[in-house]
């Protein structure tokens, strides 16, 4: 690995100070490092500076307040798995995050890192998109909020400017008629990269009809994609076998999957359908349970 300067500011103000010359001193943000360090060793990035955000209090926030779940950019996946309320209220997001890597990786990897790595197969992203999550981005002297949907623009590339970092991620906590689910498919039971991942959040009315839904699919395109055609197939309908079959058929047409070492394009399309059916069934069941 190339040599670099390591800095670990202890406040947002100090981090902003460091971001001021992040363009002349090419900087990468270090949180869990589970992707970044591997990529640096492989020679994919050679930053002059690593900015470790783990000592900044704002990046360590993990709570539910005012109807929002707040997940700091330095919060590791394992902490999220240990947060009972978050797991109960946002099971789709929680189960997606729980799938990131091994137990060892869970102890380091962060959700925001999973976003920034911008892999089309990132497990958390379809779930976060379906949940309507957004991120707080700061630069040397500016700040903005961005939705998770659309944040990744290509494999390994995001909307983040070279002198910006993400402080936290927020998502609305679902109401009592809304529930979510995420599933991915991998050849191995664990320690694997999603061949396809599907996240969904849906709201049922009193009659069990779908009043609102968001579905997103990972690994069928260069970035995870929202799936409005799947939503259209179930909106207003009871989530029964017929609706699930329509949704699965619609899911197969989402994106433009490739054939690679992890699966063929045809296989991905097929699996997108299978998982969409399974995820919507689970989410609907959870929504029914919640409304009881």
């Amino acid at each position: 690995m190339h040599a670099f300067q390591y800095v670990a500011p202890t406040s947002l103000a100090a981090a902003r100070e460091l971001l001021k010359d992040a363009i002349s001193v090419p900087t990468r943000v270090l949180a869990g490092g589970t992707d970044l360090l591997v990529q640096m060793r492989a020679g994919l990035h050679s930053p002059a500076r690593l900015l470790d955000i783990k000592k900044i209090p704002e990046t360590n926030v993990l709570c539910i307040e005012a109807g929002q779940a707040r997940i700091g950019a330095a919060v590791c996946a394992a902490r999220i798995g240990e947060h009972d309320a978050l797991r109960r209220l946002c099971p789709g997001v929680a189960e997606a995050i729980a799938l990131i890597g091994s137990v060892q990786v869970q102890g380091r990897a962060t959700v925001v890192g999973n976003l920034c790595n911008a892999s089309p197969a990132a497990d958390s992203v379809p779930a976060l998109m379906a949940a309507g999550a957004s991120i707080r981005v700061i630069g040397p002297d500016r700040e903005r909020w961005l939705p998770v949907a659309g944040f990744a623009v290509a494999p390994g590339r995001t909307l983040l400017a070279p002198d910006e970092l993400i402080v936290e991620l927020r998502l609305p906590v679902p109401d009592a008629h809304t529930a979510e689910a995420y599933q991915r498919f991998t050849p191995r039971a664990e320690m694997d990269i999603a061949v396809v991942g599907v996240g969904a959040r849906l709201t049922l009315d009193r009659d069990g009809c779908c009043r609102a839904a968001e579905v997103a699919i990972g690994a069928v395109a260069p970035t995870a994609l929202p799936a409005p055609e799947v939503v259209a197939a179930i909106l207003g309908a009871r989530i029964d076998e017929a609706a699930l079959t329509r949704a699965a058929a619609a899911a197969k047409s989402v994106g433009n999957p490739i054939s690679d070492k992890r699966g063929t394009a045809d296989f991905r399309r097929h699996i997108a359908g299978v998982l969409t059916r399974r995820v919507l069934r689970t989410a609907a069941e959870r929504a029914r349970q919640r409304s009881l």
Binding site: R188, A189, E190, M191, D192, I193, K261, R262
Partner: peptide, 23 residues
């Protein structure tokens, strides 16, 4: 898994899928 030029595309334990305990 080889590409058309004879370069192995999965030279890591992540993609060379040996059984893990759960398998």
């Amino acid at each position: 898994v080889y590409d058309a030029h004879g370069i192995m595309e999965n030279p890591a334990f992540l993609d060379y899928r040996m059984p893990v305990a759960l398998d």
